[in-house]
Simulated scan of single mutants.
Amino acid sequence: MRIQQLPIREVVADADRWPDGWPFTLAPVAQLLRDRLELGPLTILVGENGVGKSTIVEAIALAFGLNPEGGSTGAQNRTRESESPLHEALRLVRGAGASKRGYFLRAETIHGLLTYLEENPPLHGEQHFHELSHGQAFNQLLDSRLVQMRNAGLLVLDEPEAGLSFTSQVALAQTLGQLARDGMQLLVATHSPVVAAAPGAKLLQLDEQGMAPVDWWDLGQAEHLRRFLADPTRYGIDVRGWDAPGLTRS
């Protein structure tokens, strides 16, 4: 995909000033508004809870015209207004002639989206999501959306690892890399070092200092996972169970 064909080339501030308070006080948000954010075919934001990664991808999805609780530009499912005003401060630089189609999937509202799709099935046979596990429903929904989008447009995923097993996360990482190669643009927020390992991804690590490009091997979440697997006791966990010294049953 050539850079000018990306649905979103850059995210920039739409004004010289913006409101005080959250989320504008978050360092990654302030940096985005100050320096702008260039998106590639596959951009993944990684960081701890509360640093602003989900807030940023939500705002970009809304600025693109996607439904805040998930779905496409035409989805009408709404339960409770909770999105930040950040999208109102953003302007998207779009690629000339790029697809305007998009889809937004987010972990915290997927149950409501699945209910909405069951009650308003856009495709034949898409009405039994709640008979599946969380992970199965996510995979089925993702597959059906990708068929409809035909590998063109923008796919925004917020914490897609929720409900997915390790092997499913590996499969998702491979899928993300392939979709980017096939011509779709993807923007992802995740805690998972497995999802962050998607081939060809531009990784941005977010923290209280801001956000910066990072190699997967230097990713904080990947380092924590390596340390934990090597020795869980470093994190205060004794895998021998409740009978281990210093541990008591409650």
Rank of each mutant, 00 (worst) to 15 (best):
D231P: 07
L117Q: 05
A198E: 03
E208T: 04
G97M: 08
S144H: 08
R181Y: 04
Q4A: 09
R234D: 06
Q178W: 07
G71V: 03
T115C: 12
H191E: 03
V51H: 07
E118P: 08
Q136M: 04
V11L: 07
P68E: 02
S144E: 11
Q178D: 14
L176K: 05
L62I: 08
Q76F: 14
D207V: 00
Q31V: 11
A30Q: 15
F24T: 13
F228W: 14
H224M: 11
A162F: 03
A198M: 03
N120R: 05
A61R: 09
W18Q: 13
G112I: 06
D231A: 12
L164F: 00
I8K: 02
A15D: 15
L172M: 08
E83S: 13
N67S: 04
L155T: 10
M184Q: 14
I3G: 08
A171R: 10
G95F: 06
A244W: 14
G52E: 09
A13C: 13
S165W: 00
G40P: 10
V147H: 15
L66F: 03
T43P: 15
R145A: 12
R234P: 03
A61C: 06
G102R: 11
H111W: 10
Y103W: 13
H111D: 13
F129S: 01
S192M: 06
L203H: 00
L66E: 03
L123K: 04
Q127N: 10
A196P: 07
P193L: 04
L172D: 06
S54D: 11
S192Y: 08
E161L: 08
N120I: 02
N77S: 13
Q127I: 00
F166W: 01
R36N: 12
L113W: 12
L187E: 12
V239L: 15
A196I: 03
L206H: 04
V195E: 09
S82W: 15
D35I: 03
Q209F: 00
W18R: 09
P68N: 02
E223R: 13
E10D: 08
E81A: 14
R36Y: 05
H224S: 06
I3T: 11
A96F: 07
D207C: 03
A162Q: 07
L154P: 13
A13T: 08
P213H: 01
P19V: 02
R226H: 08
A201M: 04
D35W: 06
